[in-house]
Simulated scan of single mutants.
Amino acid sequence: MRILYVFQDEYPWDVRVEKITTSLGSAHVVHLLCRNRGALAAEEQLGQLSVHRVGGSGLAAIGGFPAFFSPWWIRAGLSVIRRHRIDLLIVRDLPLCPLALILKKFTGVPVIFDMAEDYPAMIKDTWRYRGPALADYLIRNPRLLRTMENLVLPRVDETWVVSAASRDRVMAKSGQGPRVRVIGNTPTIDILDMKPQPDQGTLAMVYTGFIDATRGLDTVVRALSLARREGLPATLDVVGTGAALEDIEKLVAELGLDEFVTFHGWCTQAQLRSVIAACSIGVVPHRVTAHTSTTLPNKIFDYMALAKPVIVSNARALEDVVTEAGCGLVFQDGDPESLLSCLRQLQARETREGMGASGRRHVQEQLNWSRDEAVLLDAVRGFPASRSEARV
């Protein structure tokens, strides 16, 4: 089968795109249509993946903006489909889903919607915590995006989501039933090759990922301050950057925590795993919103795979994983005292090691990409191949 994956951002790199296209490439011919912000070749072969980019430098950058009605994106999509006789379209996230349906109308190619997150809810969070820019009222408006989602869900041939909570939401809205599959953000099994480091006997927390107001990192910093006052040997390592980084750095300074907090910035995947391995507790402190309640970030599985107990906020998708795996504790979103209570419960090395071992075992047996890959390949087998000659 010949498959075209449509991605609104530049590639490389995105971990979910890489995992999906690599897995598909083991059995099929895979193409990727993505944005070009100006510095990359219009077409490129990355291993088994054929990359086609829209946009470029100068005036060509206008055409690269990922709007579903963009004539540049429509023309590029039709060109790839016809030149390479594409059998199946997979479109990542909501903004370009209508584009995929337009391409389907012209070519008859079926469409899978890879919903990595509840996009309207994510934009609503952005409006709530950062405020909208003037252009956002038109191009990133949560109400308009929700209307778009309501229109596309019944029209796509299948939808992939990242959590059971997201599946339940989509099924309730679309009535798609068995055409909604969970393909999670689980890690590849090779992460288990990295042996967990011995617990150093401290409450060394680690946070990885974007840093914005919805991530709740301020709650972790305030809980750390309470823990230090109480005499607990707590520290925090932060890997990542984002719009709220400066605010978090200021809060750390105001609370006199500079010697207990280390900011690493962005790291390579190998460096990231080394930082996690050296700590003793992984934290996912997301604010509880419609978006975070259905989204599972990669970081929770990285923590679990490296045998770290996790402390998560009470967002449903996060709480479901921790409860099922018995790999950590749940605190009340935005409440430093609640998070401090979790740290107290994790003081005993035996408790941390037991929860960490349970999380690692759960990744080894269930929450790994090998299982999601099997679901992915089974889903694709449900679509016919080699019909392109009859269509175009």
Rank of each mutant, 00 (worst) to 15 (best):
A60F: 07
S57G: 13
L40E: 12
E44K: 11
I62M: 13
V80I: 07
L78S: 09
I81S: 08
F69T: 13
G64E: 00
G55I: 02
N36Q: 04
W73I: 00
E44V: 01
N36I: 02
G47T: 10
G58C: 10
F68S: 15
L49E: 09
S79Y: 04
S70H: 08
R75Q: 15
Q45A: 14
E43L: 00
R37D: 01
V54Y: 13
V54N: 07
L78Y: 08
S50M: 09
S57Q: 12
Q48P: 09
I62S: 05
A76P: 09
A76M: 06
S70W: 07
E43S: 08
G38N: 02
G77F: 01
Q45R: 15
W72I: 00
A41E: 15
I81E: 10
F68V: 01
G63D: 01
L40A: 05
R53C: 02
I62W: 05
A42N: 13
I81C: 14
Q48F: 08
F65L: 14
L49D: 05
R53E: 00
A76S: 14
R75E: 15
L49S: 11
L46E: 12
A60T: 08
A41Y: 02
Q48C: 04
E43I: 00
V54A: 11
V54E: 12
A67V: 06
A61L: 13
G55M: 04
G64A: 07
V54G: 09
G77E: 03
F65Q: 13
S57F: 10
S50N: 07
H52F: 03
A39R: 15
W73T: 08
G63L: 05
F69I: 04
E43Y: 01
A61Y: 04
P66K: 03
L40Q: 14
F69N: 13
S50I: 04
N36A: 00
A39S: 11
I62E: 11
F65I: 14
R75C: 13
R53N: 02
G38E: 03
S57D: 08
I81H: 04
